[in-house]
Computed example of a mutant assay.
Amino acid sequence: MTISVGDKLPEATFKTMTDDGAKALTTAEVFDGKKVVLFGVPGAFTPTCNNNHLPGYLENRDAILSRGVDQIAVVAVNDQFVMGAWARFTGAEGKILFLADGSGTFAKAAGLDLDLSANGLGLRSKRFSMIVDDGTVTALNIEDSTGQAVDSGAARLIEQL
Rank of each mutant, 00 (worst) to 15 (best):
S125G: 06
D115H: 02
F14S: 09
T136R: 12
K108W: 00
K23C: 07
D70H: 02
N78F: 06
R124Y: 11
E59Y: 05
A85K: 03
G94S: 13
T18P: 09
L38D: 04
A87D: 03
C49D: 13
G111K: 08
G84A: 07
D20P: 00
A110H: 07
A109H: 03
T136A: 11
L121E: 10
L121A: 11
V37R: 11
T13D: 00
G91P: 11
A28P: 07
K126T: 03
T18V: 10
N52Y: 09
V30E: 07
T13H: 00
M83G: 09
F128S: 04
N78Y: 05
D70Q: 05
L99K: 05
R127E: 10
G33D: 12
V82L: 03
L112M: 11
R61F: 01
L97E: 12
R127M: 09
V75F: 02
D19K: 09
F106N: 06
L112C: 11
F98T: 01
E11W: 00
A92H: 08
T136Q: 14
S117N: 13
A85M: 09
V37M: 13
D32K: 15
K95R: 11
A44G: 14
G102L: 04
L54Q: 09
G91C: 06
D134Y: 01
G104I: 00
D32I: 00
Q71T: 15
D19M: 01
L116R: 13
L97Q: 13
F106C: 05
W86R: 08
T26V: 04
A24T: 10
V132R: 06
A92L: 06
A107M: 12
G104K: 02
N78T: 03
P10F: 07
G94A: 14
F45P: 12
G21E: 07
F39Y: 15
P47E: 07
D62S: 04
K95V: 01
W86S: 10
G91M: 07
G135S: 04
F106Q: 04
S66M: 03
A110W: 10
L97W: 06
D62Y: 02
V37L: 15
G120Q: 05
I72Y: 02
S103G: 14
L97I: 05
V41S: 11
L114H: 00
A92Y: 10
L54S: 06
G21C: 08
D19R: 02
S129N: 04
V30I: 14
K34L: 13
G122A: 12
G68Y: 04
G120P: 09
L123N: 03
I72S: 02
G91F: 07
L58Q: 09
D115P: 02
A24E: 15
L65T: 07
I64G: 08
G21T: 05
L58R: 07
F39M: 14
V36Y: 12
G102E: 14
D101E: 13
